[in-house]
Design a protein around this nucleic acid. Sequence first.
DNA 1: ACGCAGGTCGACG
DNA 2: CGTCGACCTGCG
Length: 306
Amino acid sequence: MVKNMYTTVIKNMDIAMIADSGQAFRFRRVPEKCTDQSVTYALIAFGRYLEITQSGEEFTFSCSEEEWEKIWRSYFDLDTDYEAIGELILASGDDYLIEAYNRGRGVRILRQDLWEMIITFMISQNNNIKRIAGSVDKLCVRSAVPIITQVPAESDRSAEYDSSTEFDHSAEANTPAPFENGAFSFPAPGEVPMEVFEDKSMGFGYRAEYLSGIYTYAAKHPDWVDSLKDMSYDEAMEALLAIKGIGKKVANCICLFGLHHVDAFPIDTHVKQILAAHYPNGFDFERYKGVAGIVQQYMFYNKISG
DNA sequence: ACGCAGGTCGACG
DNA sequence: CGTCGACCTGCG
Protein backbone atom coordinates (compact mmCIF):
# COMPACT_ATOMS: atom_id res chain seq x y z
CA MET A 1 0.00 0.00 0.00
CA VAL A 2 1.41 3.34 -1.08
CA LYS A 3 0.84 6.22 1.24
CA ASN A 4 -0.81 8.97 -0.80
CA MET A 5 0.59 11.85 1.13
CA TYR A 6 3.93 13.54 0.76
CA THR A 7 5.29 16.31 2.96
CA THR A 8 8.29 18.48 2.19
CA VAL A 9 9.76 21.93 2.81
CA ILE A 10 9.81 24.38 -0.11
CA LYS A 11 11.13 27.92 -0.04
CA ASN A 12 9.98 30.77 -2.27
CA MET A 13 6.56 29.29 -2.92
CA ASP A 14 3.09 30.47 -1.92
CA ILE A 15 0.30 28.28 -3.20
CA ALA A 16 -2.39 30.95 -2.82
CA MET A 17 -0.33 33.43 -4.84
CA ILE A 18 0.25 30.84 -7.55
CA ALA A 19 -3.45 29.97 -7.65
CA ASP A 20 -4.35 33.65 -8.06
CA SER A 21 -1.55 34.60 -10.41
CA GLY A 22 -3.56 34.28 -13.63
CA GLN A 23 -1.31 31.69 -15.27
CA ALA A 24 -3.42 28.65 -14.28
CA PHE A 25 -7.19 28.41 -14.18
CA ARG A 26 -7.77 25.07 -12.47
CA PHE A 27 -6.78 25.79 -8.89
CA ARG A 28 -9.56 25.93 -6.30
CA ARG A 29 -9.38 27.01 -2.71
CA VAL A 30 -10.81 24.41 -0.31
CA PRO A 31 -12.24 26.62 2.47
CA GLU A 32 -13.33 23.79 4.77
CA LYS A 33 -9.74 22.56 4.89
CA CYS A 34 -8.16 25.95 5.53
CA THR A 35 -7.19 26.83 9.12
CA ASP A 36 -5.48 29.71 10.89
CA GLN A 37 -2.20 27.93 10.30
CA SER A 38 -2.64 26.48 6.84
CA VAL A 39 -4.34 26.78 3.46
CA THR A 40 -5.44 24.00 1.14
CA TYR A 41 -5.93 24.24 -2.60
CA ALA A 42 -7.14 21.63 -5.05
CA LEU A 43 -5.80 21.39 -8.58
CA ILE A 44 -6.36 19.40 -11.73
CA ALA A 45 -3.40 19.14 -14.08
CA PHE A 46 -1.99 16.45 -16.36
CA GLY A 47 -5.24 14.54 -15.85
CA ARG A 48 -4.63 14.27 -12.13
CA TYR A 49 -6.33 15.64 -9.07
CA LEU A 50 -4.02 17.04 -6.39
CA GLU A 51 -4.61 18.71 -3.04
CA ILE A 52 -1.88 20.99 -1.70
CA THR A 53 -1.75 22.10 1.93
CA GLN A 54 0.67 24.82 2.92
CA SER A 55 1.72 25.82 6.41
CA GLY A 56 4.61 28.27 6.23
CA GLU A 57 7.29 26.54 4.21
CA GLU A 58 5.86 23.08 4.84
CA PHE A 59 3.80 21.56 2.04
CA THR A 60 1.73 18.40 2.02
CA PHE A 61 0.64 16.96 -1.32
CA SER A 62 -2.09 14.33 -1.76
CA CYS A 63 0.14 12.00 -3.74
CA SER A 64 2.89 9.48 -3.21
CA GLU A 65 6.50 10.57 -3.02
CA GLU A 66 7.03 8.75 -6.30
CA GLU A 67 4.30 10.75 -8.07
CA TRP A 68 5.63 13.94 -6.52
CA GLU A 69 9.09 13.29 -7.93
CA LYS A 70 7.79 12.17 -11.30
CA ILE A 71 5.16 14.82 -11.97
CA TRP A 72 4.75 17.65 -9.50
CA ARG A 73 8.33 18.56 -8.66
CA SER A 74 8.82 19.72 -12.22
CA TYR A 75 5.31 21.21 -12.45
CA PHE A 76 6.06 23.58 -9.57
CA ASP A 77 9.41 24.45 -11.18
CA LEU A 78 11.43 23.47 -8.13
CA ASP A 79 14.70 23.27 -10.04
CA THR A 80 14.72 26.96 -10.87
CA ASP A 81 16.60 29.16 -8.40
CA TYR A 82 14.04 31.83 -7.47
CA GLU A 83 16.30 32.98 -4.65
CA ALA A 84 18.87 34.12 -7.20
CA ILE A 85 16.24 35.96 -9.20
CA GLY A 86 15.15 37.72 -6.03
CA GLU A 87 18.71 38.82 -5.32
CA LEU A 88 19.04 40.20 -8.83
CA ILE A 89 15.87 42.23 -8.36
CA LEU A 90 16.74 43.43 -4.87
CA ALA A 91 20.12 44.65 -6.12
CA SER A 92 18.59 46.52 -9.06
CA GLY A 93 17.76 49.77 -7.28
CA ASP A 94 14.39 49.62 -9.07
CA ASP A 95 11.94 50.62 -6.35
CA TYR A 96 8.82 49.60 -8.24
CA LEU A 97 10.16 46.16 -9.13
CA ILE A 98 11.49 45.58 -5.62
CA GLU A 99 8.06 46.31 -4.18
CA ALA A 100 6.38 44.05 -6.74
CA TYR A 101 8.81 41.28 -5.88
CA ASN A 102 8.36 41.67 -2.14
CA ARG A 103 4.60 41.39 -2.54
CA GLY A 104 4.63 38.50 -4.99
CA ARG A 105 7.72 36.50 -4.16
CA GLY A 106 5.74 33.30 -3.65
CA VAL A 107 4.71 33.20 -7.32
CA ARG A 108 6.49 30.71 -9.57
CA ILE A 109 6.19 30.02 -13.30
CA LEU A 110 4.51 26.63 -13.43
CA ARG A 111 5.49 24.11 -16.10
CA GLN A 112 2.01 23.42 -17.40
CA ASP A 113 0.68 21.25 -20.18
CA LEU A 114 1.32 22.87 -23.57
CA TRP A 115 -2.03 22.06 -25.19
CA GLU A 116 -3.92 23.33 -22.14
CA MET A 117 -1.96 26.60 -22.32
CA ILE A 118 -2.74 27.02 -26.01
CA ILE A 119 -6.46 26.67 -25.42
CA THR A 120 -6.81 28.53 -22.12
CA PHE A 121 -4.82 31.52 -23.37
CA MET A 122 -6.79 31.64 -26.60
CA ILE A 123 -9.83 31.92 -24.33
CA SER A 124 -8.07 34.60 -22.26
CA GLN A 125 -7.95 37.27 -24.96
CA ASN A 126 -9.95 40.44 -24.19
CA ASN A 127 -11.44 38.56 -21.25
CA ASN A 128 -11.22 38.45 -17.46
CA ILE A 129 -9.76 35.78 -15.21
CA LYS A 130 -13.04 34.77 -13.61
CA ARG A 131 -14.80 34.22 -16.90
CA ILE A 132 -11.76 32.43 -18.36
CA ALA A 133 -11.80 29.97 -15.43
CA GLY A 134 -15.54 29.46 -15.89
CA SER A 135 -15.21 28.67 -19.60
CA VAL A 136 -12.26 26.34 -19.00
CA ASP A 137 -14.23 24.46 -16.35
CA LYS A 138 -17.24 24.11 -18.64
CA LEU A 139 -15.03 22.87 -21.47
CA CYS A 140 -13.64 20.11 -19.22
CA VAL A 141 -17.04 19.18 -17.80
CA ARG A 142 -18.68 19.01 -21.23
CA SER A 143 -15.87 16.88 -22.64
CA ALA A 144 -16.04 14.61 -19.57
CA VAL A 145 -12.62 12.99 -19.94
CA PRO A 146 -11.91 11.06 -16.71
CA ILE A 147 -9.00 12.02 -14.50
CA ILE A 148 -6.36 9.43 -13.64
CA THR A 149 -6.38 9.79 -9.88
CA GLN A 150 -9.56 9.33 -7.94
CA VAL A 151 -10.66 12.20 -5.79
CA PRO A 152 -10.60 11.28 -2.10
CA ALA A 153 -14.11 10.47 -0.90
CA GLU A 154 -15.88 13.32 0.88
CA SER A 155 -16.07 11.29 4.10
CA ASP A 156 -12.48 10.21 3.85
CA ARG A 157 -10.72 13.25 2.49
CA SER A 158 -7.57 13.32 4.55
CA ALA A 159 -7.26 9.63 5.22
CA GLU A 160 -4.94 7.61 3.10
CA TYR A 161 -6.51 5.58 0.37
CA ASP A 162 -5.24 2.64 -1.55
CA SER A 163 -4.10 3.65 -5.01
CA SER A 164 -4.51 0.07 -6.21
CA THR A 165 -8.29 0.04 -5.82
CA GLU A 166 -10.32 0.28 -8.99
CA PHE A 167 -11.14 3.85 -9.82
CA ASP A 168 -14.72 4.91 -10.02
CA HIS A 169 -14.78 7.50 -12.77
CA SER A 170 -18.46 8.35 -12.41
CA ALA A 171 -19.29 11.99 -11.96
CA GLU A 172 -20.54 11.39 -8.42
CA ALA A 173 -17.33 9.77 -7.30
CA ASN A 174 -15.32 12.66 -8.71
CA THR A 175 -17.20 15.67 -7.49
CA PRO A 176 -15.12 17.18 -4.71
CA ALA A 177 -16.43 20.37 -3.18
CA PRO A 178 -14.14 22.77 -5.07
CA PHE A 179 -15.05 21.25 -8.45
CA GLU A 180 -18.79 21.14 -7.96
CA ASN A 181 -19.50 20.20 -11.56
CA GLY A 182 -17.09 17.26 -11.53
CA ALA A 183 -13.33 16.83 -11.71
CA PHE A 184 -12.33 16.12 -15.30
CA SER A 185 -9.17 16.16 -17.38
CA PHE A 186 -8.43 18.92 -19.86
CA PRO A 187 -9.68 17.65 -23.24
CA ALA A 188 -7.07 16.80 -25.87
CA PRO A 189 -7.67 17.35 -29.61
CA GLY A 190 -10.49 15.03 -30.65
CA GLU A 191 -11.93 14.87 -27.15
CA VAL A 192 -14.36 17.78 -27.44
CA PRO A 193 -17.76 17.28 -29.10
CA MET A 194 -17.70 19.97 -31.80
CA GLU A 195 -21.20 21.24 -30.94
CA VAL A 196 -19.69 22.55 -27.71
CA PHE A 197 -18.20 25.38 -29.76
CA GLU A 198 -21.67 26.46 -30.89
CA ASP A 199 -23.10 26.50 -27.39
CA LYS A 200 -23.42 30.09 -26.18
CA SER A 201 -23.60 28.97 -22.56
CA MET A 202 -19.92 27.99 -22.69
CA GLY A 203 -19.11 31.70 -22.51
CA PHE A 204 -16.48 31.55 -25.28
CA GLY A 205 -18.10 34.45 -27.10
CA TYR A 206 -16.48 35.28 -30.42
CA ARG A 207 -13.47 33.09 -29.47
CA ALA A 208 -15.53 29.94 -30.14
CA GLU A 209 -14.59 29.89 -33.83
CA TYR A 210 -10.90 30.23 -32.99
CA LEU A 211 -11.21 27.27 -30.60
CA SER A 212 -13.03 25.01 -33.03
CA GLY A 213 -10.37 25.96 -35.59
CA ILE A 214 -7.39 24.97 -33.45
CA TYR A 215 -9.09 21.82 -32.13
CA THR A 216 -9.80 20.74 -35.70
CA TYR A 217 -6.30 21.63 -36.87
CA ALA A 218 -4.55 19.82 -34.01
CA ALA A 219 -6.68 16.70 -34.47
CA LYS A 220 -5.73 16.67 -38.15
CA HIS A 221 -2.03 17.28 -37.41
CA PRO A 222 -1.33 15.05 -34.40
CA ASP A 223 2.35 15.99 -34.00
CA TRP A 224 1.97 19.74 -34.41
CA VAL A 225 1.65 20.47 -30.68
CA ASP A 226 4.69 18.43 -29.65
CA SER A 227 6.74 19.83 -32.51
CA LEU A 228 6.58 23.23 -30.78
CA LYS A 229 8.65 21.77 -27.94
CA ASP A 230 11.64 21.25 -30.23
CA MET A 231 11.65 24.84 -31.47
CA SER A 232 13.53 27.89 -30.28
CA TYR A 233 11.55 30.76 -28.77
CA ASP A 234 11.54 32.63 -32.09
CA GLU A 235 10.49 29.57 -34.06
CA ALA A 236 7.70 28.74 -31.61
CA MET A 237 6.43 32.33 -31.79
CA GLU A 238 6.28 32.18 -35.56
CA ALA A 239 4.45 28.83 -35.55
CA LEU A 240 1.94 30.04 -32.96
CA LEU A 241 1.30 33.38 -34.69
CA ALA A 242 0.24 31.47 -37.80
CA ILE A 243 -2.83 30.24 -35.92
CA LYS A 244 -5.98 32.34 -36.19
CA GLY A 245 -6.84 33.63 -32.74
CA ILE A 246 -3.26 33.69 -31.48
CA GLY A 247 -1.60 37.10 -31.50
CA LYS A 248 1.63 38.34 -29.98
CA LYS A 249 0.44 38.44 -26.38
CA VAL A 250 -1.20 35.00 -26.33
CA ALA A 251 1.77 33.47 -28.18
CA ASN A 252 4.08 34.87 -25.50
CA CYS A 253 1.90 33.43 -22.74
CA ILE A 254 2.01 30.03 -24.43
CA CYS A 255 5.80 30.28 -24.77
CA LEU A 256 6.21 31.29 -21.14
CA PHE A 257 3.67 29.03 -19.43
CA GLY A 258 3.56 26.10 -21.85
CA LEU A 259 7.11 25.94 -23.17
CA HIS A 260 8.92 27.63 -20.26
CA HIS A 261 10.72 30.08 -22.53
CA VAL A 262 11.46 32.42 -19.63
CA ASP A 263 12.56 35.27 -21.87
CA ALA A 264 8.99 35.59 -23.14
CA PHE A 265 7.48 38.79 -21.74
CA PRO A 266 3.73 38.92 -22.46
CA ILE A 267 2.45 42.51 -22.54
CA ASP A 268 -1.24 42.58 -21.67
CA THR A 269 -3.35 45.54 -20.61
CA HIS A 270 -1.97 45.46 -17.03
CA VAL A 271 1.69 45.16 -17.95
CA LYS A 272 1.23 47.83 -20.60
CA GLN A 273 -0.07 50.18 -17.91
CA ILE A 274 2.84 49.28 -15.61
CA LEU A 275 5.42 49.93 -18.31
CA ALA A 276 3.82 53.27 -19.15
CA ALA A 277 3.59 54.38 -15.52
CA HIS A 278 6.93 53.17 -14.16
CA TYR A 279 9.21 52.88 -17.20
CA PRO A 280 8.43 55.85 -19.46
CA ASN A 281 11.95 55.61 -20.92
CA GLY A 282 11.75 51.87 -21.55
CA PHE A 283 12.32 48.76 -19.45
CA ASP A 284 15.80 47.21 -19.31
CA PHE A 285 15.06 43.75 -20.70
CA GLU A 286 18.77 43.09 -21.14
CA ARG A 287 19.32 43.16 -17.39
CA TYR A 288 16.80 40.38 -16.88
CA LYS A 289 17.80 38.17 -19.77
CA GLY A 290 16.91 34.59 -18.91
CA VAL A 291 14.38 35.60 -16.24
CA ALA A 292 12.29 38.31 -17.94
CA GLY A 293 9.13 36.18 -17.88
CA ILE A 294 9.42 35.66 -14.15
CA VAL A 295 9.94 39.39 -13.61
CA GLN A 296 6.86 40.01 -15.74
CA GLN A 297 4.88 37.68 -13.49
CA TYR A 298 5.86 39.56 -10.33
CA MET A 299 4.70 42.81 -11.98
CA PHE A 300 1.46 41.25 -13.17
CA TYR A 301 0.63 39.61 -9.85
CA ASN A 302 1.42 42.80 -7.95
CA LYS A 303 -1.07 44.69 -10.09
CA ILE A 304 -3.99 42.27 -10.09
CA SER A 305 -3.70 41.46 -6.39
CA GLY A 306 -4.71 45.02 -5.65
C1' DA B 1 -25.18 52.67 -17.55
C1' DC B 2 -20.77 51.81 -19.75
C1' DG B 3 -15.96 50.81 -19.77
C1' DC B 4 -12.92 47.08 -18.88
C1' DA B 5 -10.97 42.40 -18.84
C1' DG B 6 -3.92 38.48 -19.21
C1' DG B 7 -6.22 40.90 -27.55
C1' DT B 8 -6.75 39.77 -32.35
C1' DC B 9 -8.51 40.38 -36.92
C1' DG B 10 -9.18 42.69 -41.14
C1' DA B 11 -9.52 47.03 -43.50
C1' DC B 12 -7.44 51.08 -44.70
C1' DG B 13 -3.73 54.59 -45.49
C1' DC C 1 4.71 48.70 -42.14
C1' DG C 2 1.29 51.24 -38.09
C1' DT C 3 -3.32 52.57 -36.62
C1' DC C 4 -8.25 51.83 -35.84
C1' DG C 5 -13.01 49.92 -35.16
C1' DA C 6 -15.46 45.73 -34.15
C1' DC C 7 -16.10 41.96 -31.24
C1' DC C 8 -19.02 38.01 -27.00
C1' DT C 9 -19.99 38.61 -22.27
C1' DG C 10 -20.27 39.44 -17.23
C1' DC C 11 -18.92 42.39 -13.65
C1' DG C 12 -18.10 46.95 -11.09
